[in-house]
Design a binder for these strands. Structure first.
Lengths: 408, 408
DNA sequence: ATATCTTTTTAATTTTTTAACAAAAGTGTT
DNA sequence: AACACTTTTGTTAAAAAATTAAAAAGATAT
């Protein structure tokens, strides 16, 4: 049990110096996790300490089995520096992604390498708190299979849709019960559990590993069944008072619009989300407005999902393309709001729909030009995410790491 | 010239210890400026140093003439602590507020006390760069009158409306010239000049001296001729990539709406700002829809301004009250957008129109209930600013102080 | 092979903290 | 009201820690 998270956790009976040392060690481990092997000098730039001090910390960490020397780096004409990196088995993090219709689990080692294959459990989130036990069982099996010592697991990061307050561990939308869902998981797993909203974990993944890496003010829009907004301001993930910031999909966009699942009418989500596309596609199919899309789903409207529409569009289906263009226009108008409010460096578009970026980006750009002040709208960079479907799970794992390691 | 800003400025030929010392001294001065007299222990909590070290820094600052002992504070049963505070004449900051129709100047001492009366110069900002010389002259006269040594002036903070980039010192909307307007002022004054957008300086004033003091996520809405939004996230003022964040007044709210001065149509500002109120009031006056408002302006529509309308409303004028209610509804819808995006702790309403808060707050609340997710909208606190008209000038002065003192 | 450039190591110096003690002021008991 | 007790602050000296500076070691270029 005398493992880093415990050992380096802030204890009140520590003196100032010990606290500082441990905080610096945690910083080093975090840095090596996120950015890989580094030299003493690189780390010095980051933790602002003199060479002798860093070397002494690195030696302590080496003796504790946390890090190892990894040969020598390059020099531009001088002695070659030693490289230090986390030891693969120094610790592990478990990432769990609960989506509407399935749950994925992955385990990462101390080098931020995913050491598991694809583990997917089909489960419907609307079934509520009853899906907790299967998820725990599924995860425990993977941990056992990989023969990872429990005390080497830093904790479990869990991303899910809905109004998630990571401080209290409550999800107000899904998996609602009389106790905070994070606590339910914590009890069952017997270890640290962090829950976070999926749009935010993906934004965090972009910030640490993706297109937002060197930027300070970036928005990420995740398009799947709903519309998720991730906000990065001043180089940090923004969550708001309760963690509910980013309810972009429920901005009222249309007067007397369609009823949204949130109870209001005319939300952006009713006209520019995966749900909206499927609704429009079903209507179109009934009216026989597309033969290609119909074929893809065997003429069964219930089989329509975002991927079918994206595929049909990519195959040249006019009806699907026009639906995507329509979604793009509305989304672009919404983005114009965001750009004027945030003046971000870029907006990163993610989710299944982004595979149709050729159809959706032009109308977005057009709407931005129409609705945005040119000083703000002309310079904005709209990109498609390069992180794959694992972004969320990677993000929530990193988020957990930072939460554990940033304590105090 | 060996005055604090110079003396404590980060010089590359300083060693680490000296740099750290100076940075800590700057922190102390900043803290004493913002929060007044403090004890050694209070400061220790803030700069995280041991008592002997802080005492030694305080003694150095005392010898340098920056701070002084101010007798003793209270104790809950023990030796009474020494109080330390900035010396009034340690340094001065000049604050200038350029509004649409007038410019105000004030000087603050090192205790953040305003040492000048009300100095107001009627000047129209749309006259462009030609107003710079009169402003400089006006300010220099006040400095001379107060007999303040130039080298004791930390710098000049300048707030103004428009798209202001405080990094480059450029205002894209007003006072446009071939050189950054901040540089023009800097040259003429021969000292540090910071320019910032007025909505942001007011938000900063709320953060440091007003209702946002102990909060982390707050929005401020300033209502005068336009609508200004100030954004405080994670306890910091947010500015966006170019400093243009917060263009709330130009969100497109109405399809086929009135032409806005920004070139687009249907902006929030066309229906919910001082400009909009005056336009509506003029139309109403022509149609003889209000006798009270007419009397207040001697039946001359050109004399209508926000204050007249607010006064008429407070005197019971139905027409003025209904205009304010209308503005409140639109503003409330706009705020619903902001609340869903930011999930803030509170929204602080400022500007002349807030004197009519009894007429404008209820429709705002109503609109929030209609357009906002109840989880976000029900708990939001909408307050009227308690800082007076000097908030902006105080804010920009504090902003300049922090910019100078936070360097490195 | 020599000069140059970098990183690492070592030792000396400086800085900061810890901890013990002294001083000052309030609290409570007799 | 005098006295001891407690609490908090301030001072000092010893101990610990971190930095600086100098030297050594390792690598590259001329």
């Amino acid at each position: 049990m005398n493992f880093p998270p415990e050992k380096y956790s802030s204890e009140s009976d520590m003196n100032l110096v010990e606290q500082k040392n441990n905080s610096q060690k945690r910083k080093i481990i975090k840095h090596l996790f996120l950015y890989g092997a580094m030299t003493n000098t690189d780390l010095g730039r980051y933790v602002k300490l003199s060479t002798p001090k860093i070397i002494s910390l690195l030696n302590e960490l080496k003796n504790e089995g946390m890090i190892e020397e990894l040969g020598q780096g390059n020099s531009s004409g001088g002695r070659r520096p030693n490289l230090y990196g986390n030891k693969e088995d120094a610790f592990y993090i478990v990432g769990i992604s609960i989506n509407i219709y399935q749950t994925s689990v992955a385990i990462f080692n101390a080098k931020n390498q995913k050491i598991t294959g694809d583990h997917i459990l089909p489960l419907t989130i609307t079934h509520g708190i009853s899906i907790v036990d299967p998820i725990v069982q599924f995860t425990e099996n993977i941990i056992q299979e990989k023969q990872i010592a429990r005390e080497k697991i830093l904790g479990i990061g869990l991303e899910m849709p809905g109004l998630v307050d990571s401080e209290t561990g409550i999800n107000k939308t899904y998996l609602v019960s009389n106790r905070p869902v994070a606590e339910v998981f914590r009890k069952k797993f017997g270890m640290e559990v962090l829950i976070e909203n999926d749009a935010k974990t993906r934004a965090f993944a972009e910030l640490r590993f993706g297109a937002a890496q060197l930027k300070r003010n970036v928005l990420t829009v995740h398009l799947d069944w709903g519309i998720g907004l991730g906000i990065i301001v001043n180089g940090k993930l923004y969550k708001g008072r309760d963690g509910f910031a980013g309810e972009f999909g429920h901005l009222p966009m249309v007067d007397n619009g369609i009823l949204c699942k949130c109870g209001k009418t005319g939300c952006l989500e009713t006209i520019a989300s995966g749900t909206a596309i499927v609704r429009m596609a079903k209507e179109g199919l009934k009216e026989k407005r597309s033969s290609l899309l119909g074929k893809l789903v065997d003429e069964n409207p219930e089989k329509i999902d975002i991927i079918n529409v994206v595929r049909a569009a990519n195959m040249g289906d006019q009806f699907s393309i026009s639906m995507l263009a329509n979604v793009g226009q509305w989304l672009g108008k919404g983005m114009a709001y965001l750009i004027q409010i945030f003046n971000p460096e870029s907006i990163i578009l993610g989710g299944q729909i982004s595979e149709a970026s050729q159809f959706i980006l032009p109308p977005i750009q057009q709407a931005i030009h129409i609705f945005c002040n040119p000083e703000l709208g002309n310079e904005i960079e709209i990109k498609v995410s390069e992180l794959g479907s694992q972004a969320g799970i990677q993000g929530v794992a990193a988020l957990l790491l930072e939460r554990v390691l940033d304590k105090k």
